[in-house]
C-alpha cells in the first residue's frame, strides 16, 4: 500500500544532478529535470545534446555515477527492479525482431517482465487493439511499414502497464501522417491512463502549447518549463526560432567564457 502512496506522490520521472562522462567528454553535466505523471514532457535538443545518454541512464544501460534518477519514486540504482518494472521505453533505433511475428515480439517482451503466457497473450492483444494493429498480430514484423512498427513498439512499451513512457525520437524517418498518428496516440495515452511521457525530439513542431519542455544542449539543461517560457527565453513567438536563439545564445556565452579563460591564462 505504501508503495502505491509513494507512486502517487512522486513524479513519473525525476532526474537530479546527473553528470555522466565518456572518458574526458562530458555527455551530461549536472542534469536535473522532472516529467510529471499525466503530462507530455518534451526533451528538446539538437543531435548530440545528450538525450540518448540520458535515456541510457534512465533505462540503466549504464548506471549514473552522480545524482539520482527515480521512476515513480523508485531510485533506479537502489531499486532497479521496481524502477524498470514501471518503465516503458521506445528506443530511437528499431528494436523489434523482424523475423518474428508482431505477437511473438510482444510475448517475448512480456516474458522479460515475468508475465505468464496466457496473461501475456491477453495483454498483447489488448495493446495491439489499442494501437489499431490487432489484425496484424500474426504477421511478421518485416511486413509492416515504419509507422506501424513504431506503433507496435509503443504497444510493447505499454504491455506491462508502465507509469512512465520514454520515447527517444520516435518519429525519425516517418512520414508526416505517421508522425501525426503516433503523437496523437501517445497524447491519448496520457489523457486515458494518466501516465507520464518523456518525448525526446529535435523537431519543435511536435510540441504543443500546453506541453512541458526541457531544452538540453551540450549535456546541460538550458530551460525547463512551459512552451511560453521557451518563447520568452528565445525572444520569438515561433518555437523553432526561439529554440535556435536559446541554443545560439548558450554557444555564444560558452565561447566568451572560453576566450576569457584563454586570455586569463
Amino acid at each position: 500500500m505504501s508503495e502505491i502512496a509513494v507512486e502517487t506522490r512522486a513524479p513519473a520521472l525525476r532526474v537530479s544532478g546527473v553528470t555522466h562522462a565518456f572518458g574526458a567528454k562530458k555527455a551530461l553535466d549536472d542534469v536535473s529535470l522532472t516529467a510529471p505523471s499525466g503530462a507530455f514532457t518534451a526533451l528538446l535538443g539538437l543531435n548530440g545534446a545528450g538525450k540518448t545518454t540520458l535515456f541510457s541512464l534512465i533505462t540503466r544501460l549504464y548506471e549514473n555515477r552522480s545524482g539520482a534518477i527515480s521512476v515513480l519514486g523508485h531510485d533506479v540504482r537502489q531499486q532497479p527492479t521496481r524502477a524498470l518494472s514501471r518503465l516503458g521505453v521506445v528506443f530511437q533505433s528499431r528494436t523489434l525482431d523482424l523475423e518474428l511475428s508482431v505477437l511473438q515480439n510482444l510475448l517475448y517482451h512480456a516474458a522479460l517482465h515475468g508475465i505468464g503466457r496466457s496473461e501475456a497473450r491477453r495483454r498483447s492483444l489488448a495493446v495491439l487493439e489499442r494501437v489499431g494493429l490487432a489484425a496484424r498480430a500474426k504477421e511478421k514484423v518485416r511486413a509492416l511499414s515504419g509507422g506501424q512498427m513504431r506503433r507496435v513498439e509503443i504497444a510493447r512499451a505499454l504491455l506491462h502497464g508502465p507509469g512512465l513512457l520514454l520515447l527517444d525520437e520516435p518519429t525519425v524517418g516517418l512520414d508526416i501522417g505517421s508522425r501525426r498518428a503516433i503523437l496523437d496516440e501517445v497524447r491519448r495515452l496520457i489523457d486515458d491512463d494518466g501516465i507520464g511521457v518523456l518525448w525526446a525530439t529535435h523537431l519543435v513542431d511536435e510540441i504543443e502549447a500546453a506541453d512541458r519542455v526541457v531544452v538540453v544542449h551540450k549535456g546541460r539543461v538550458l530551460l525547463e518549463g512551459r512552451v511560453d517560457d521557451l518563447r520568452a527565453r528565445g525572444g520569438s513567438e515561433d518555437v523553432g526560432t526561439a529554440f535556435m536563439a536559446a541554443v545560439a545564445e548558450t554557444d555564444r556565452r560558452d565561447k566568451a567564457a572560453e576566450h576569457k579563460t584563454d586570455t586569463a591564462a
Binding site: 523508485h74 518494472s85 511473438q104 515475468g114 489499442r130 502497464g161
Partner: peptide, 29 residues
C-alpha cells in the same frame, strides 16, 4: 481493453515464477 494499462502491475518485486517466465521467454525467442 480489459485492463487499464497503467494500473495492474504496480512496482513489484519479481517472483520465482517470474524468473522462470523470463528465462523461458528468452530461450523461446
Amino acid at each position: 481493453a480489459p485492463a487499464p494499462l497503467s494500473e495492474p502491475l504496480p512496482a513489484r518485486d519479481v517472483t520465482f515464477g517470474g524468473y522462470l517466465v523470463c528465462m523461458g521467454g528468452i530461450v523461446w525467442r
